[in-house]
Design a protein around this nucleic acid. Structure first.
Lengths: 222, 222
DNA sequence: TGTACATCAGTGAACGCGCGTTCACTGATGTAC
DNA sequence: TGTACATCAGTGAACGCGCGTTCACTGATGTAC
C-alpha cells in the first residue's frame, strides 16, 4: 500500500537489500540531517525494529550503504579507464568525466561517500577503507601508465593522482553545492559542459610534462 | 564556573557574540550531527531559551555563523591577493595557499561554509549569497588580472576561476576528510607540503596560456 | 538627582515530539530423521 | 510424506531521552522629564 515492494511471505528474505535501497532513496529525498532509521523502516513497509535484525544500529546501515556506493563508484571509474581507447591521458580524462558524472547523477550517494562523520578519527571501518582505496587506485594506475607513456614526469604517482583527485572532487563538490558557485544564473546544462571541459582541460595541461626550461620560465614570465 | 565568560550584570550585552563563538567551538568539538542549540546555550552559561532573543531558531544561528565565516574567509583570500607582490600568477598562487590554509586551520568553519543544507534549494539567505560571491570574486579578479598580464588566455574569467576554485576546494576537502585519502600513512606535515606544492603547481601549469600548437599537440603526443 | 515607565534580555517550567533501541513475543522457514 | 524441533526474521509495545520551541515571568537597563 504505502510501499511498492510486496513480500510474498512473512520473511521476504531481502529486507537487507530493501533497507539499503530505501536508505539511499531517503537520503536523496531529504537531507542526511533528517535521516532516521524509523523512516527507513516505515518506507520499507516494515516495523521499526526489523532493521535491527540486519544492522546493529543506524550508523552501521549508513556505513554499509557507503561502502556499497564506494564500490560502485570505484567500478565506474575502473570501467571508464578500461573501456576508453587511446593514450593514458585520454583515458585519464575519461576517468575524470566518470567522476563528475557519478557525482551529478548520484548526488546523495556522492555525499554519503564523503560525509565527514564517516571518516572520522578512530572509528575506521576497514571495509570502507578498502573500497575507498580501490577507487583511488584507478587514479594512481592511470597516472603510472601516463608516466610510462611519457605524458607525466616520473616520480611518486601519488602526488599527481591526488592533484587529479582534488580537481575532480572539487568540481563535483562545488557543482553539488550549487549555490556555492556564485555564477549569476544557476548552472544549467548549457553552462555545465563548458565548465567541465575547462576544468578537465586545465587539469590535463597541468599534469602534462613540460620541458624544465618552460617550467622554470613560465611562472615568472612577464 | 562551567563557563569562562562572566558577565558583569544581568544583561551582559554580548550574548549574541558569545553564542556565535560557542557555536563554532561546539561544531569543532563534536560534529555538526550532534550540534544542538541547548548545548550551545549550556556552554554559554545561559538558559536554553536565551538564544531565542538573538536568533529566531537554530538554523538562523548556523546561517549567521556561516555568513560570518564566509566573510572572514573572503577577507583572507583578499588579503593574500593584495599583500603578495609579483605577477598575477604568483598572487593567485598565494590565494590558493590561503584557501588551503584556511581550511586546514579552521576545519569546522570550513565545513560549516560548505555544508549542503546551507545552500539547499529555495531557502537562499541573501546575505550568505553575498558574502559567498565576494569570496569568489577574489578568484575572478585574480584571473582577470592574469589574463591582462597575458598568463591566461582571454575569455570568460568564470571558467578558469571555477577551475582554480575546484582544485583548491577539492584538495581542502580531501585533506579535511583525511581518511578519504588512502595514502598508506596518515598525512603528516611532512607529506602535506609536497602535496600542496604539487597540486598548486599543477593548477598553475594548467591555467597558463599555451601556444595553440602546443595545446593541439600535447594531449595526443606519444 | 529622582521618579515613572517602557523596553530589553534574561529565567525556568512546560509542551509535544520522534528518535534509537530493547524486549518478549510469534509466525514462518529449514532441517533431521 | 510427516513430524519434531531449532532457528530465523518479523511484530508491537515500551523505555528513556534530549531536542526545539513557547510561554508567562521578572529583574536590569535606558529614557523622559
Amino acid at each position: 500500500m504505502t510501499n511498492a515492494i510486496r513480500r510474498d511471505g512473512y520473511h521476504h528474505g531481502q529486507l537487507r537489500r530493501v533497507l539499503l535501497d530505501t536508505a539511499l532513496e531517503l537520503a536523496s529525498t531529504r537531507g542526511l540531517q533528517e535521516f532516521t532509521l524509523r523512516e527507513v523502516a516505515r518506507r520499507a513497509g516494515v516495523s521499526h525494529a526489523a532493521p535491527y535484525h540486519h544492522f546493529p544500529d543506524k550508523e552501521a546501515l549508513l556505513a554499509a550503504l557507503s561502502a556499497e556506493i564506494f564500490t560502485d563508484f570505484g567500478a565506474a571509474l575502473r570501467t571508464a579507464w578500461e573501456t576508453t581507447p587511446g593514450t593514458a591521458i585520454v583515458r585519464l580524462d575519461a576517468v575524470g568525466r566518470a567522476y563528475i558524472h557519478f557525482a551529478l547523477t548520484h548526488p546523495a550517494a556522492f555525499r554519503l561517500m564523503f560525509r565527514p562523520e564517516l571518516h572520522m578519527a578512530g572509528q575506521e571501518d576497514p571495509e570502507l577503507r578498502e573500497v575507498g582505496e580501490r577507487a583511488f587506485r584507478v587514479l594512481v594506475d592511470g597516472i603510472v601508465a601516463a608516466q610510462a607513456e611519457g605524458f607525466i614526469a616520473p616520480g611518486d604517482p601519488i602526488l599527481p593522482a591526488l592533484a587529479a583527485w582534488s580537481m575532480a572532487h572539487g568540481l563535483a563538490s562545488l557543482l553539488l553545492e550549487g549555490a556555492a558557485i556564485p555564477s549569476h544564473a544557476p548552472l544549467d546544462d548549457l553552462s555545465l559542459n563548458p565548465l567541465i571541459e575547462t576544468v578537465l582541460k586545465t587539469l590535463q595541461q597541468g599534469l602534462l610534462t613540460r620541458t624544465p626550461a618552460a617550467q622554470e620560465e613560465l611562472p615568472t614570465a612577464r
